[in-house]
Amino acid sequence: MIRSSLAPLGALAALTAIAASPASAQSVCGPREHLVKLLADHYKEDPVGMGLSQPGQILEVFASSNGSWTMVMTMPDGKACMIAAGDSWEMVIKVKGNPV
């Protein structure tokens, strides 16, 4: 089941006055600190991984113990956008000598 409610993320978009047109309302953007707080408060998601996507752009994955997850792209100016979300997240840990 994909995210049961994106209402809090919609509220973030309205709160930060970064509105997307209805045709492109697939991502929610705003200041990174607001998005991180929203993910922690509403979905109990914390960072579980990150990497450099393009110069200055950081891709982060947030996940909760109940399996919900969100991917966030942060730009050099601090603006962050939720680019994907879902359920059934599992951490994969590579043990030395054993393929994943």
Score class of each variant (00 low, 15 high):
L52M: 14
L15F: 03
W69K: 03
T74K: 04
D46N: 11
A7Y: 06
G78F: 03
E60Q: 15
P31S: 08
P22S: 09
I18W: 03
C29A: 07
G49T: 07
S68I: 00
A7G: 08
G10H: 12
L12C: 02
G56E: 02
D87K: 15
C29P: 02
Y43L: 08
L12M: 09
V36F: 04
L35D: 10
A84N: 10
D41C: 05
L52C: 07
G67N: 01
G30E: 05
V36M: 04
M73K: 03
N66W: 02
C81S: 09
E90A: 11
D46Y: 09
A40N: 13
V100S: 05
M82C: 02
K94Q: 15
G10K: 07
S27Y: 06
L15A: 13
L52G: 12
N98I: 15
S68N: 11
L59I: 08
S21F: 05
K96G: 05
L52P: 01
E90N: 11
D77I: 10
I18K: 09
A80F: 01
G86F: 09
A84D: 07
A40W: 08
M50K: 12
D77A: 14
P8L: 12
S68Y: 03
T70H: 06
S21A: 12
R3T: 05
I18P: 00
A23V: 13
R3K: 06
V48T: 03
W89F: 15
E45F: 02
G67Q: 04
M71E: 09
A11P: 00
T16K: 08
L38P: 01
A63R: 03
A25R: 13
I93H: 06
